[in-house]
Design a protein around this nucleic acid. Structure first.
Lengths: 233, 233
DNA sequence: TATGGTTGCCTTACGTCGTAAGGCAGTGCT
DNA sequence: AGCACTGCCTTACGACGTAAGGCAACCATA
């Protein structure tokens, strides 16, 4: 027996999801700089400090936003991928990237947000796992799959920072946390973890951007040079 | 006859250059978030508001920082390029990129800074002009040179934002200002301006990142796919 | 030598930001 | 009845960028 005293619902109680949805709408409409705690609070009809009951602070809010975008990308990619059963790796990868791009165009602030986040959202790993899976399915070795990921750069998520690794500014703890997190969901990222294992990176670098070694850089360089030479006409 | 009354110079009077040098040192040591007007002022032994005599505000400070990094890149690139007279385009481009990368590794904050600037520093145009010159010298058409620039992405300046164009948030004025600026130094950017003219972009898009059209995106995609296919082994 | 403008730095103050600390009404469980 | 918890609020603090204005030292000119 639920209480049903008023025809007017006084207010549904606000949740992390509602807050994040409002934040996304705000940022879509007015850009990242418009997103302040007070402003978002006003947007959902609440005072600033009330947000802290549902979100762990501004950074947590931004993390949530980033997570939400990647989730949206994940969904879009999964949708197109499901329609491409018979296709080869090129067609599949192409459609994946194009689908991700559509989401990015809907949220132009996403690349800047993602590249500014000190810790990589967990969903990003899942996204990359799907790319790796497609490559492996296409007959690529772990090594080339790895290098391909680097080479794709900004085509995958709309941004790329070859040199800069935000985690490097965050100290050792963040790296360890990222490692632990990655290990925790290893069975959900079979291809990624297998690739990392196969590549046998130094233990300190188990994510996907830090191994910005000279060799990755030059591999991409040569890939592009070769392609351009052929296109020179 | 200059006045020379004291053995002790009371203080040399602080300049834009000294302020920018201090800012660079600060950011190298403690990251972009440590750069505040008050902190920088303290660093050069002055009160915060005194900085406004030499710099037009925080944004102007960041612009100056960005300009300084690109200038450093420009110098490094010019130095190596001078030693590569007989080499082909591949070797020259490679050394250019690697030289730029060294500077980036010295200033890990540079990609984030550059990608966050609402207006592209003028020096960036000069940098791209040099790349285009190398490509043209290597026998490339303006069209392929243009697409090559897009394909290089983050290899050139350490970052790339395929979708996001900061200027889009800045309104019309910024685009016009950029156009005017570019036109003003057209004779210093012969290859860039020639390429833009040859490509006949829509008048609204004369810079280097905005033409992030589907075709550029897919060109890069195919370039990489072709290269990867050959590397598949 | 007196004077007035310019240069370089300072003090004070305002509005905005994120958020710590604590209050207070409503709900549900014991 | 009592109490804990939930969800929101008020107040307040320190840090930020910067507008407004003051003040001393310098310099050129009369």
């Amino acid at each position: 027996m639920e209480s049903r005293m008023g025809v007017r619902k006084p207010r549904e109680p606000l949740s992390r999801e509602r807050a994040l949805a409002a934040a996304t709408a705000l940022v879509d409409a007015e850009g990242l700089t418009a997103l302040t705690m007070r402003r978002l609070a006003a947007e959902v009809g609440v005072e600033a400090m009330s947000l802290y009951y549902h979100l762990p602070g501004k950074e947590g809010l931004l993390d949530g936003l980033a997570e939400a975008v990647v989730t949206e990308i994940l969904a879009a990619v999964a949708a197109v991928d499901a329609t491409l059963d018979g296709e080869d790796w090129r067609a599949r990868l192409r459609q994946r990237f194009l689908a991700a791009r559509v989401v990015m165009l809907r949220h132009p602030w996403a690349p800047a947000l993602l590249s500014s986040r000190p810790n990589i959202p967990a969903e990003v790993y899942a996204y990359y796992d799907g790319i790796i899976a497609t490559l492996l399915d296409g007959g690529f070795s772990y090594r080339i799959a790895h290098r391909a990921l680097h080479a794709f750069g900004s085509l995958a998520l709309g941004f790329a920072q070859e040199v800069f690794r935000p985690a490097s500014a965050g100290g050792q703890a963040d790296v360890e946390a990222a490692e632990a997190e990655l290990a925790a969901m290893a069975e959900q990222l079979p291809h990624l973890t297998a690739m990392v294992a196969a590549e046998a990176h130094d233990a300190a670098d188990p994510t996907l951007g830090w191994c910005d070694s000279q060799v990755e850089f030059e591999f991409t360089l040569d890939l592009l040079f070769d392609g351009l030479e052929r296109a020179r006409g």
